[in-house]
Amino acid sequence: MPVKTRFNKLAKKRIIIESFVAFLIILSPFVFKSHEYLPEDENIESIKILWFEMGQNGFGSIEGHGWFIMGKLVPLYLLVIWFFTCKHWWYHIILLPILMYAFQLFELFFTPAELNAITDSQNLMWLLPVCVVVIPFVYFIRLKLYDKHVHGIDLEAMDEELNIIKAKEELRREREKLEQLKKTLEKKM
């Protein structure tokens, strides 16, 4: 396949993906406001939306429940888009708010309705193991970049220099051994 044809296919694919991502971002305010189309009547216990049934789930109305869901879902999907499109070294730290919103939605859907008053209360304990892994990982990346670009310390160059010094030291020792051997041979002759 010619290079130009392959490049054109990759360019078209990238344009389609980036257009779809832009469309999702543009759509986010409308997705968030979709809760306004749910019934506000407190007497309506549940409604059927597409393939699932939505109830009040401990909120005053279905509309209140929808507002709470959209308040978690929209930031979650925007953060996921940001995570997958971010080209900065620190993008792993975006996992923390992503997981926070994901756990809040998980709590909302899998907590009994009478316990929903305490939704968003236990997230920290679920996030702690992730924080223990992600934060040091990002911090060490930051340290390496800071040392290299701010202090001018290039660890790879330092390792290379140390290897060169070690090699020179080995050669010096070998030369000394050869000199000693040469002296002992001259004395014997």
Score class of each variant (00 low, 15 high):
47 I>Q: 01
45 E>H: 10
93 I>V: 14
68 F>K: 06
173 R>A: 10
182 K>T: 08
133 V>I: 12
34 S>R: 10
71 G>Y: 03
56 Q>G: 04
49 I>L: 01
13 K>C: 06
92 H>D: 03
11 A>C: 05
137 F>G: 05
110 F>T: 06
161 E>T: 14
150 V>K: 07
124 L>R: 11
56 Q>H: 05
140 F>I: 02
82 W>K: 05
63 E>N: 10
146 Y>T: 10
154 D>L: 03
36 E>L: 13
120 D>S: 09
18 E>V: 10
187 K>R: 04
107 E>R: 01
131 C>P: 07
54 M>H: 09
9 K>S: 12
129 P>G: 00
81 I>W: 07
22 A>Y: 13
68 F>V: 15
82 W>D: 05
145 L>F: 07
50 L>C: 02
86 C>K: 07
93 I>L: 11
137 F>P: 03
176 E>R: 15
101 Y>M: 01
111 T>A: 02
67 W>M: 04
84 F>G: 15
125 M>S: 08
141 I>H: 10
179 E>W: 14
106 F>I: 01
25 I>G: 04
104 Q>V: 14
51 W>Q: 10
6 R>Q: 05
24 L>Q: 14
109 F>N: 05
30 F>A: 03
187 K>F: 14
83 F>M: 02
86 C>A: 13
72 K>F: 10
73 L>F: 13
107 E>K: 02
129 P>W: 01
146 Y>P: 04
151 H>W: 03
53 E>M: 07
96 L>F: 11
149 H>A: 12
103 F>C: 09
24 L>W: 08
52 F>A: 08
149 H>Y: 05
154 D>K: 00
68 F>N: 07
88 H>I: 15
29 P>I: 03
122 Q>E: 12
160 E>I: 08
59 F>S: 00
134 V>D: 01
26 I>M: 12
97 P>A: 02
170 E>Y: 13
97 P>S: 06
127 L>T: 13
151 H>V: 04
48 K>W: 11
29 P>H: 03
5 T>A: 05
15 I>M: 07
150 V>P: 04
18 E>Y: 08
16 I>F: 08
48 K>N: 05
154 D>N: 05
91 Y>K: 14
140 F>D: 00
120 D>M: 06
135 I>D: 00
100 M>A: 11
88 H>A: 07
130 V>N: 05
152 G>T: 03
8 N>E: 10
144 K>I: 10
71 G>M: 01
103 F>W: 08
44 I>A: 06
1 M>L: 13
38 L>F: 13
14 R>W: 09
129 P>C: 00
20 F>G: 03
96 L>S: 04
79 L>V: 02
139 Y>F: 02
121 S>N: 12
169 E>H: 14
100 M>L: 12
127 L>K: 09
133 V>F: 11
11 A>I: 05
